[in-house]
Design a protein around this nucleic acid. Structure first.
Lengths: 169, 169
DNA sequence: CCGAATTATTTTAAGCTTAAAGCAATCGGG
DNA sequence: CCCGATTGCTTTAAGCTTAAAATAATTCGG
């Protein structure tokens, strides 16, 4: 009964529900499924191969790009997670001897973190394997597919960002 | 020094590292960023508008499609999460009066859950708004873009699934 | 019918995540 | 200089998530 109504609307645009956006909804579901699936696999492999979690790997990846270290705030912005989250992650990585952490000499509020030599070595090893995993996972895509996906995902991201800022104008 | 080497390899394919898969890596980063971004926004809106979490919304969505209810195991398979996860989610939804839960009359191991009348009503309200949010978020995409993304994401998913089963053959 | 294997679920321990509140240091205007 | 605002970080409480172990019920081969 409800289903019939929805189909009817889709065909005729008459509707008490002005527009149905089934295509967009299905796109979202597929996008989410796809990235969740891959993310779960990467988590599993990181755990099995290196006994590391994805968040810790991500944090180390950010620091690997900044040889001189970074503040916790900068890290939380780049990782797009909360401040408190980074506090805890960094704490655990310091415990493991993979991170150095020190107060800024010029601003006593600021905490600077960087990879230790061991941390850098460990990350580089993991990163190489990680890149191979990703290549394996996307091996079924042609170069053209990858290019098209890059473009379309950028467009989707732009669209999403716009919807987030200009909230109900 | 390392950077230079990587760039050199990319150009010439000489390399001690046989192939670099930068394109795939960047695709994965973009896919992940895109879906994380949207997911965070949906979580935020569900919380602000309906005081509900995404996992609870997802669970209710599954049950809405199965009017006669479902076992916890079926639910965990469809949601692609662990059994223990569903146990806890269902528990909290029952507490809120949105879910009914009863043992199967034919198999005492099995727990059947279904939406209560209130749960169904609440879900339908949320679902309508949720669909509008998704439409808003993807408003910058043309119908052709959506179609192309659907196709390419399906292809990516297929490729990922293949990489997951046939592990290092 | 018995016992071993399988199946469905729950429990546990550990870790991730967030929003909100709190604390300390710094900055900026008067 | 000083005080109010801002900034950087930490803490807290709550919830999600998983893997692994535990529990309980059912099934199946003999």
């Amino acid at each position: 009964m409800d289903e019939a109504a929805v189909i009817f609307d889709a065909e005729t645009k008459v509707a008490e529900r002005p527009a149905d956006h089934e295509a967009e909804l299905r796109l979202w579901l597929r996008l989410l499924t796809c990235s969740t699936l891959i993310e779960a696999e990467i988590r599993r492999r990181l755990r099995d191969a290196f006994d590391v979690t994805l968040p810790r790997f991500d944090l180390m990846a950010q620091l690997d790009k900044a040889p001189s270290g970074m503040t916790l705030g900068e890290l939380s912005r780049r990782m797009m997670v909360s401040n408190g989250n980074v506090t805890g992650l960094a704490e655990r990585l310091v415990e493991q001897g993979l991170l150095d952490r020190r107060a800024s000499p010029t601003d006593r509020r600021v905490q600077l973190v960087s990879l230790t030599a061991e941390g850098r070595r460990a990350f580089r090893t993991m990163a190489r394997t990680h890149e191979d995993w990703i290549a394996e996972i996307f091996a079924g895509l042609e170069p053209d597919d990858i290019e098209a996906l890059m473009r379309l995902l950028a467009k989707a991201k732009g669209s999403a960002r716009k919807a987030m800022s200009g909230e109900t104008p």
